[in-house]
Computed example of a mutant assay.
Amino acid sequence: GWCAMKGMPQVGMFFESSEEAWLFWRAYGGRVGFDVRKRYNNVSKFDGKVTSCRFVCANEGHRKKGQREFIQKCFRAQTRTDCKARMSLTLDQESENLEITDVVLEHNHLLHLPQTRHLMASQRKISEFQAFEIEAADDSGIRPQAAYELATRQVGGPLNLGYTPRDHRNHLQSKRQRELAFGQADCEENISNIFWADAKMMLDYAHFGDVVTFDTTFGTNKEYRPFGVFLGLNQFRETKVFGAALMFDETLASFKWLFKTFLGAHNGRQPRTIYTDQDYAMGRAVEDVFTEAYHGLCTFHIMQNAVKHLSPIKGEDEDEGEEKEEGEDKD
């Protein structure tokens, strides 16, 4: 296999797949000091196998005319030098492996020094330990820039870190997307209930989660799905969000799933008091899940329900009074 070969690519070498050949070309570029790119990858329409492919130096070709004529917020240096370094492969029908048929190893530009090769785009990688430190800093409320500067100081400079600030931000973005996995799916594997809470919400709940208000009256989406929010107040009486949910319906089962997921996201810590509206299913779910909390009804919802149920009666009385006055005028 290619892992045992530390030399240069040569015509006649075979690879079992295009992925294996790409890993070899990327590893070779990392050893020599040039970044790599895929030029093309032709696939058969009959069996889906790769029939030919070409891997090149990242400096291959020229920048398209007019591509950078408009004003840029951030200037990017010209890197395309029409470098001819490449490795072309074609499918061998007998062995069904990809064979190197063309190789050019000369470059027309300076190569990276050994001290900076690991910072090339194709070579950068965040280790498992580094990923743990990045996520731990984010969960503690440390801003990405400050966390990156701390990591560089611990290893003696950015050249020893192995990843860039952009890699740091991209990893956090992927982490937040994974956090959206707090979801429940129906039998057709469609998302029916979604709960979301990020690190800031978890930190706020740890400090100010004694009293929580849950409300599903903020709005709905175009499919009329209820949207619920867990809210609280900090020491300055500022509103803090502890979690949000997009629900399939407002049934007992959905509310129980949501409240259990809410507790799971906050390490099982129950609030001392939770305020909700007068929904029966919601109340039942609160009693079953928030067993250590006092359940109160929000006065806003009580007043809204009073107006909702009493206003028609008041309107009818006014209408009847107007009819009587009109009748008296006629008399």
Rank of each mutant, 00 (worst) to 15 (best):
L119G: 03
H109S: 09
G29H: 02
F46S: 14
R80N: 14
Q177S: 05
K45N: 15
A293Q: 08
I313Y: 14
K256F: 00
R31F: 06
I274Q: 01
V103A: 09
D35Q: 00
A199K: 05
M5L: 14
A58G: 02
Q10R: 12
E16N: 10
C74T: 15
G48T: 02
T216D: 05
F129H: 06
T101M: 02
G66H: 09
F300M: 03
E106D: 15
F182N: 15
W22P: 00
W22T: 00
G327F: 11
E133M: 10
C83A: 05
F46T: 12
A265K: 00
D331Y: 11
E320V: 14
A151M: 15
A21Q: 02
R169N: 05
K260V: 09
T152S: 13
S88C: 15
H295W: 14
D249H: 05
D317L: 07
T213E: 07
I302A: 05
G183K: 09
Y280H: 10
Q10H: 12
D319K: 09
A58W: 04
F129I: 08
G296D: 12
K200D: 15
D331W: 09
G30S: 02
D198Y: 04
I194W: 12
R176A: 13
I71F: 10
P312I: 04
M13Q: 13
V212W: 00
G232K: 00
F214I: 08
